[in-house]
């Protein structure tokens, strides 16, 4: 979805930023969005990531982004706990991204 949206709308996003904190995603607030997403998966109760994102995109957008992060705490769990695989066609189409981000080391890569 990320690749599709960024390519279709010609936003030059560096996908490697998803996996590597050193890489700048290259979009406005990209670094702050990634930081918020990482904070979501942690356990600390801390508004630093939210406020840094809010300073660039505004508080409403930052709160919406927090909601998106929360939603993926749902989707990741329902997918992994039920063992839903990625279709072979989709894996072929995204082979470059899978390799670049090292996704094939994830436990469910072989499903």
């Amino acid at each position: 979805m990320l690749s599709w949206s960024s390519t279709t709308t010609r936003r030059n996003l560096d996908l490697r930023a998803v996996a590597d904190p050193v890489v700048d995603p290259g979009t406005q607030a990209g670094r702050q969005l990634v930081a918020l997403a990482r904070a979501a998966v942690g356990t600390r109760s801390d508004t630093t990531a939210l406020l840094e994102l809010a300073s660039v995109l505004g508080l409403e957008a930052a709160v919406d982004a927090a909601g998106v992060a929360a939603a993926f705490e749902i989707y990741n769990r329902v997918i992994d706990a039920t063992g839903v695989p990625v279709g072979k066609g989709s894996q072929r189409r995204n082979a470059e991204i899978i390799e670049a981000l090292g996704l094939d080391r994830f436990p469910h890569a072989g499903l």
């Binding site: 997403a37 957008a61 989707y75 469910h108």
Partner: peptide, 24 residues
């Protein structure tokens, strides 16, 4: 959605999924 673009939304989604090691 306000100042949040679909690519921003998917960047958050992809990063959460990566951090959770969700291959899907």
């Amino acid at each position: 959605r306000g100042t949040l673009h679909r690519t921003d939304i998917e960047l958050v989604a992809a990063t959460v999924s990566y951090e959770n090691e969700c291959f899907y």
